Simulated scan of single mutants.
Amino acid sequence: MNNTNKLHILIIGILVLTQSCKSLKNATNESKTAEITLYQNGNEKIIPKGTSSIAINKDQFSLRFYNKKYNSVTEKYYATQIGAFIDPNDLEKIKVGMKTQDLPCFELGSGMAPDTSGKYESLIFNNSGHHYLNYENSDSKRLNLLKTEKEYRKLEFEINRLYLNNKDVSMRETELSTFYLAILIDENLNGIIEKGELTKLTVDIK
């Protein structure tokens, strides 16, 4: 093998290694905010990517996910936005590639006000509003902080009650058998639903 061929092989090897490292880095970054877990009755289960439905017991549960710190000083408003629906058609309207401003449930100003505790005490079903979930510090929060990993925080949204048709009931008392969730984490804050930022779930209550 002459020196020219050796040089070509070396260059190709470097390019392949560089691309592999870049792909691994992108996969790692993507998996952090795309990872959503279900916590119920002391058990935590990762919701596999691409999953469209989950089953829960008729009891309180939590959704856990990663996001960056909400920072009102630097105007980095990192938040997890969750819409809850009874009609599957409302879920179907939300698609990757859309602008949040074109969706009544996610448009500017559609974040619903929390309870006096500063958190949402119930999961609210509203096809023209969403739960605006953020964590800035121990005094300004709508989520539980579970742990910090570099610039990311693992956060928890507890769901003990359901609010529907002006009635507030506990998970154990609900007559619902199915509802729908759209979970949006706009990591680059550009107002566009991009691949990896949206999780749509059908939730079956057993």
Rank of each mutant, 00 (worst) to 15 (best):
Y180P: 06
K6L: 01
F157L: 11
K167C: 11
G191K: 02
N43H: 13
S110P: 10
K141L: 01
I183Y: 05
S128I: 00
L176V: 02
E158L: 01
Y70H: 09
R153M: 07
F157G: 01
Y66T: 06
S170W: 15
L7H: 15
C21Y: 14
S170V: 12
L198N: 04
N134P: 01
N5P: 04
N3T: 10
L91A: 15
S20A: 08
N2L: 11
Q19N: 14
N137G: 06
A113D: 07
L91E: 14
E30T: 08
Y70F: 14
L198R: 05
S20C: 04
K99N: 14
S52R: 11
T37F: 15
K200Y: 09
T199G: 07
S122R: 01
G42Q: 02
K93G: 00
K93E: 11
K93H: 07
Q19G: 10
Q81C: 08
I94P: 11
M112I: 09
Y66V: 03
E197H: 08
P104H: 00
L38M: 10
G109V: 03
P114W: 14
N137A: 13
K45M: 04
T100C: 05
K32Y: 03
G13S: 13
E107N: 10
V16H: 04
E197D: 14
T178A: 14
T28G: 06
K95H: 14
I54M: 07
L181R: 05
V203D: 09
N3H: 13
A55Y: 14
E194K: 00
T178L: 06
G13C: 10
Y132P: 02
I36W: 01
N127H: 05
I82W: 01
E92F: 15
P48K: 15
V169K: 01
E107A: 15
S52V: 12
N67G: 07
S117K: 02
L15S: 05
S72Y: 12
N190Q: 06
N67P: 00
S177C: 12
D59R: 15
L10G: 11
P114Y: 14
V169I: 07
N126Y: 04
T51Q: 05
R161A: 07
K6W: 00
E121G: 03
T100H: 08
K95M: 05
D90P: 13
M112N: 08
G111I: 12
N144Y: 04
D102G: 06
R172P: 03
L7M: 08
F65Q: 08
F85W: 13
Q60L: 06
G111C: 15
I94K: 01
T80Y: 02
N3S: 04
Q81F: 03
S138P: 05
K22P: 02
